[in-house]
Computed example of a mutant assay.
Amino acid sequence: MRNEPDDDTRFSGLAPIDGPAPPAGDPPKRRLPFRWFWPMLAGAAIAFVLRLAFSGAPGHGYSAMLGTFIFLAPALCGAVTVYVAERIERRSWTYYLVAPWLSTALFVLGTLFVFIEGLICAIVVVPVFAVMGSLGGFAMGLVCRVTNWPKPALYSFAVLPLVLGAIEPQFPNPERLSSTARTLFIAAPPERVWHEINNAGAIRPEELGDAWAYRIGVPMPVSGVTQETPEGRVRMVRWQKQVHFEELVIEWEPARHVRWRYRFAPDSFPAGALDDHVMIGGHYFDLRESGYTLVPRDGGTELRLDVSWRVSTRFNWYADRLAQFLLGDFSEHILRFYKARSEATATADAHTGPMIRP
């Protein structure tokens, strides 16, 4: 009875193409320096080329925010990494999963280096890229181990994003509406808190803390002042980097409740202020409404902040959770800002008399 060949014999056709073994006594072949690095560089390079192809405008073909790019670019990066590595020598299953993390990281750093991507997008997309890179690397490792056609499989994988990148925009993105709320007690009367909300001027960075949104590059608020205009009350907001927009007041109960909806102008976000892909009021993300509710309690005020938004992507399951985290954290820091200002001025009023302007 004939014995079955073992795995090394059966898949020898996939082994690295190094030629026949040198005769005994021959000097060993010189190998390329940093051989461990070349597979990662190859994976990052092919993903970078794909990013150049996906430079379309938001909502159009070959946009970098298409699910096709977000999922398949890092997967292709991982697949190329493993394919090149297998051409050098057989790798482990762990390598298939872990090596793509480095190649996708190199890819993201490359896009930052040449200013294709901004810091905000780069930071928020890294977890997705790492997971998809591992899946692509694992799939290519499986192909290399159990088939005789790793190269055709890689070619097919490389063509797939180019085909789907033209088809996906023909179908509208799913839309998800969400909201978050935070509450904080302030040791100041509602009238004082109300004044601070509608007259927040000359905001200093140290007053806002280190919210995660600021850490990844979102400009900090500079002022937010409610004004009377011919169309009604409008809160004029300014952020760093010359960002400016308006909040149209739609509910107004002095010292009790205020709610507004956002209005953004074409020049609200100057070039470089935010990444184009996460532009507020844009194709993929929008702030809808915010509101403050003031409730007298225990000699002070319970201040509640509600924020609602929209995300419209092929990966809303991720984008919405990210928005929940960032906007929830942002809301907590804003409430602390109003708490600090209200309590400080309330203490000053206790010594010098009320200074609240009408």
Rank of each mutant, 00 (worst) to 15 (best):
215 R>F: 08
200 A>G: 03
309 W>G: 01
248 L>C: 09
211 A>S: 14
294 L>I: 01
213 A>S: 06
293 T>M: 04
249 V>W: 00
266 P>V: 10
259 R>D: 05
213 A>L: 12
202 A>C: 13
247 E>K: 11
249 V>N: 02
284 Y>G: 01
198 N>Y: 00
264 F>V: 03
196 E>N: 15
309 W>C: 07
254 P>E: 12
206 E>R: 08
304 R>V: 13
270 P>Q: 14
289 E>Q: 15
280 I>K: 04
252 W>H: 14
291 G>N: 14
251 E>F: 02
288 R>W: 09
241 K>L: 06
267 D>L: 12
237 V>C: 09
258 V>K: 02
280 I>Y: 05
211 A>G: 10
276 D>V: 15
268 S>T: 02
210 D>K: 11
246 E>I: 05
248 L>T: 07
200 A>S: 08
245 F>Q: 11
311 V>R: 02
205 P>K: 09
256 R>G: 06
282 G>L: 11
196 E>C: 03
234 V>T: 08
231 E>Y: 03
204 R>W: 00
293 T>W: 09
205 P>D: 08
188 A>C: 10
300 G>L: 10
193 V>I: 10
236 M>A: 14
274 L>M: 04
240 Q>Y: 03
289 E>S: 06
279 M>K: 15
190 P>F: 00
290 S>D: 15
254 P>M: 04
254 P>C: 05
196 E>R: 07
252 W>V: 13
275 D>R: 04
266 P>W: 02
194 W>S: 02
276 D>M: 14
294 L>P: 00
300 G>E: 03
200 A>P: 09
229 T>E: 06
292 Y>I: 13
258 V>Q: 01
306 D>M: 06
233 R>A: 10
195 H>Y: 15
291 G>H: 00
226 T>W: 02
252 W>G: 12
274 L>D: 02
254 P>H: 09
264 F>N: 05
300 G>I: 01
305 L>C: 07
288 R>T: 05
226 T>L: 08
276 D>Q: 12
